[in-house]
Amino acid sequence: MEEGLRILPQILISGLVIGFLYAVVALGYTMVYGVLEFINFAHSEIFMFGAFIGFEVLMFLQKTSLLTTLPMVISLILTMLAAMIFSGALGWTVERLAYRPLRGAPRLVPLISAIGVSFFLQDAARIIWEALRGNWQLAVPPLYTGVLTMGPWQVAGAPLQLQVPYGAIVIMVSGLIMMFSLIWFVNKTKVGKAMRAVAQDRSTAALMGVNVDRIISTTFVIGGALGGAAGSLFAIRYTSITPYIGFILGVKAFTAAVFGGIGNLAGAVIGGLLLGIFEALGTAYLGPLTHGALKGPEYKDIFAFLILILVLVFKPAGLLGRTVGEKV
């Protein structure tokens, strides 16, 4: 028990880091859901493409040895920017080609199309990078690979030290910046207000002179850009990427969005952070709690799913959401 408590701060940090990624991706799900009441299944693949574009930028920087000569933060910004632009454009394209023709169709129709897009993009990435690099499992050039060591402090008679990778700090800082920018954008700018108006009442927004199609496109571009940024951060922090990194992470980020209250930006952030922390705790302590019978890391992906079911059964509106029941 004593030993378990001592690793707790370290676990919380790693949970928080992955939680920030969930949160940023969840923002994309929740924005689209808020505006269209539809799960953008392909969002996880837009995240994944962000990781691959980030990888390509880093490879380029490495090849031109700019990676070592440029200040790290410039490399980081270049990487994230490229990923955001590409993923934003991808989000726009997907909406235009696969979702817009289906607006007004029964709910399952765009959902099935979105699943199709997700599969298509996943396999497309595999094909592209297999052709480009001969392999779809790629090692990302190093950026922010150092570790910040804090402490040691004397806690309960023994030294306690915290290891925080720089990559983790990068994720948390840029995550915070993106979240606050988005919340400011949606609440304070004219386009942001139009976005909320479209989410609440599409035809009345049109009567106010809002070009609804353009606002929906904007939503997909912003959501996609955030997903792309998260993807590039994932690549930097976890240094190995495949076309399949989006799938499970996407399900979890969606869970985070539902957990926080779908359609609610702050909810998505809180949901993401909490989910990351729960998952880290579960992964670390399942083994010890079952005396080694069950291996925590093996069952890691189940925690998010359990939370999803529990939330949907007991509090479908989520932590901060309003009720989105079937309309009667």
Binding site: I39, R107, F254, E298, A304, F305, L308, I309, L312, P316
Partner: peptide, 27 residues
Amino acid sequence: PVMRMRGDYLAIVTLGFGEVIQVIARN
């Protein structure tokens, strides 16, 4: 537990269920 959920939630929960069964079979 999922029958009262709306359609798109049901989709994602069943998806998760499929993954869980696979994880359990593997472990």
